[in-house]
Design a protein around this nucleic acid. Structure first.
Lengths: 343, 343
DNA sequence: GCGCGCAATGTTGACGTCAACATCGACGGC
DNA sequence: GCCGTCGATGTTGACGTCAACATTGCGCGC
């Protein structure tokens, strides 16, 4: 038995040296072909290409990264992909990064405990990334009191101003004002609010701006109901609102909770928009097909994603810090869930 | 002027050698400390740790990968993160991979053209990954006629059997049968179908199984309406169904299209479930809060994700191929959108 | 026909890490 | 007190790539 096969077959692919040997050239020439340098004879290039193909050669990213001192990769720290906004933003980030020749390294935080977040950042230290985009609602960061590795470019997608990193976010305040004023202009005496979780800066901003708008218009500020972004939480909180006949207009901090509220209103027999007007936030694709179609504030996740990548890449390549936060404007989309109050 | 600063500051972080110099030990000792080897004197270890911290040392992933011959990274090829199912699966994949000590490299395909897909795979060749999970509906792969790099472990999340790679997927056929039989058992004479796009294997499977179930029960097979998974397409297709008084029961290939159908039925004044019963597929969180709450087929994206990662990692580490596809069972969740037909 | 210039190709070494092997010193048994 | 043992630490080289520099040879001008 001439069994000489090693137990663990270290499947290292062929290297430049192997290709070079087969093609009868030097490794450097293979490198030139692999990188599309022009100063290679056409005949040689074809021979090398053929050898590459025959061996199934793939350049080794690690060696390249080591040599060049950069990974061409961006880390994205996320908590839950199931959250609608995060996902959309991540999608835009991935696309923008790809177009700039960077790839995206997903670094999920398994739970929101301090330990998990700290742990994620220490894993980060071991990741082969040139920079990081943080997509976690930043209260968690504050609580965890974590510190990012020094000298690693970072961009935060959130409204927190507590950190000394460049920040890109939707203009939450403007969006909330848009929604609230729309309802007031329809003639409602005041606007109730179904807010996001207190751990979220975005939720904070929307709530604050809603309150300020009411005050600016001399309206009474009703008590806030809180949810956690899910439709279920919107339904739970919505049952309270639905039972209260004073409520004629509600600004909900996202579309999913708005869906839950709509259900609660239905179950209570209150007509939308006849008895109660509802405005959401996000303009998810489904919002146009709620019943009635939801009036909501559209935010451009794509733009937020694109700006984050731009900011991060310029930081990576030039060492620049944009300390002025980028704010992406929102837009009110009026559909069927809002109307003047019943007289 | 002793200005010696290079124009482009290559921001290479400190290396082991720097730490070693500061701590007065050899590089190897630093390596041992970094990797928690036990055979280092406590005093020395503390000194090295202090030096690491002072310099802000982070181990260089590229060098480590080069040395070890593995990247501890998995590529995930996706098309659109906005698609609900893909996202949920990706989330599970990311979590499972993280727990196994792998990170996820997102490789988005920017559009579905052949060129783009082929291009994505050639980029893939340059990625520093140990294996790949493909999350694209596989018709696109067929059309693009692309070939993956040889010797790179691959797992496909889809129902396609055209490829010689391990496949993990939800048991689409079982789910569709569950939905269809539920409606038949309620007493409907037949069940209509609002299907997914013809490019999707998952949609194919659901449609075929729906049809087979009808035939098994001796029911007439009505013509299929197609959508593209979005609520909008469900609404468009749904208008046709809503206008047809023969329609008393519809199995919709996903929840989002079901939402669009519900809207179309509302607009037409047809009651759900009084006039028409509707069953969806996916059980997205929102489905419970549609009006009426949607009866649907729950699939476990988490389990699909976990199985994919398991299969890929065992392929990477042991070179095993599981040629038997993994099928994850579904479950019918009965809510308020289904009832016996009006007599 | 001589040499210059330039394009094609080859050679060398360094990027940062870590396994394998080498060395060094302390301690214990006899 | 000598030697063997073992634990702590140091030295060397290789992983695959590519920039910088070195070399080769060909064509062209005069």
């Amino acid at each position: 038995m001439a069994a000489e096969v090693p137990l663990v077959r270290r499947r290292r692919g062929p290297s430049m040296a192997d290709v070079a040997r087969l093609a009868g050239v030097s490794g450097q020439t293979v490198s030139r072909v692999a990188n599309d340098r022009h100063n290679v004879d056409a005949v040689t290039r074809d021979r090398v290409r053929a050898a590459m193909h025959e061996l199934g050669y793939r350049p080794n990213g690690a060696a390249r990264a080591l040599r060049n001192g950069e990974f061409r990769s961006i880390g994205a720290i996320v908590f839950e992909l199931s959250s609608f906004g995060t996902t959309r933003t991540l999608d835009a980030i991935a696309k923008a990064a790809t177009m700039s020749g960077y790839s995206i390294n997903l670094l999920p935080v398994l739970d929101v405990s301090q330990r998990a977040v700290t742990n994620a950042f220490s894993r980060l230290g071991e990741q082969a990334v040139d920079g990081v985009i943080i997509l976690i609602e930043a209260h968690t960061l504050d609580e965890a009191g974590v510190q990012l590795p020094d000298g690693l470019p970072v961009v935060v997608v959130d409204s927190s101003a507590h950190y000394d990193y460049p920040i890109v976010d939707t203009d939450q305040a403007q969006g909330a004002r848009l929604a609230t004023e729309h309802l007031l202009e329809l003639g409602h005496r005041t606007v109730w609010h179904l807010g996001g979780p207190p751990t979220s800066f975005a939720a904070d901003r929307r709530r604050q701006s809603w309150e300020q708008t009411l005050l600016d218009h001399g309206c009474e500020v009703p008590p806030v109901h809180d949810g956690d972004w899910t439709a279920s939480s919107g339904y739970e909180a919505g049952r309270g609102l639905a039972a209260n006949d004073d409520v004629t207009a509600v600004f909900v901090a996202n579309d999913q909770m708005a869906l839950g509220l709509l259900r609660a209103l239905y179950e209570r027999g209150r007509a939308v928009p006849g008895d109660v007007s509802v405005v959401g936030f996000d303009d998810m694709e489904e919002a146009a097909h709620f019943w009635p179609p939801l009036t909501t504030v559209r935010q451009s996740f794509a733009e937020v994603g694109r700006h984050s990548v731009d900011a991060l890449i310029s930081e990576i390549q030039a060492g620049e810090h944009h300390h002025s936060p980028v704010s992406v404007a929102t837009e009110l989309v009026v559909r069927g869930s809002t109307a003047p109050p019943r007289t």
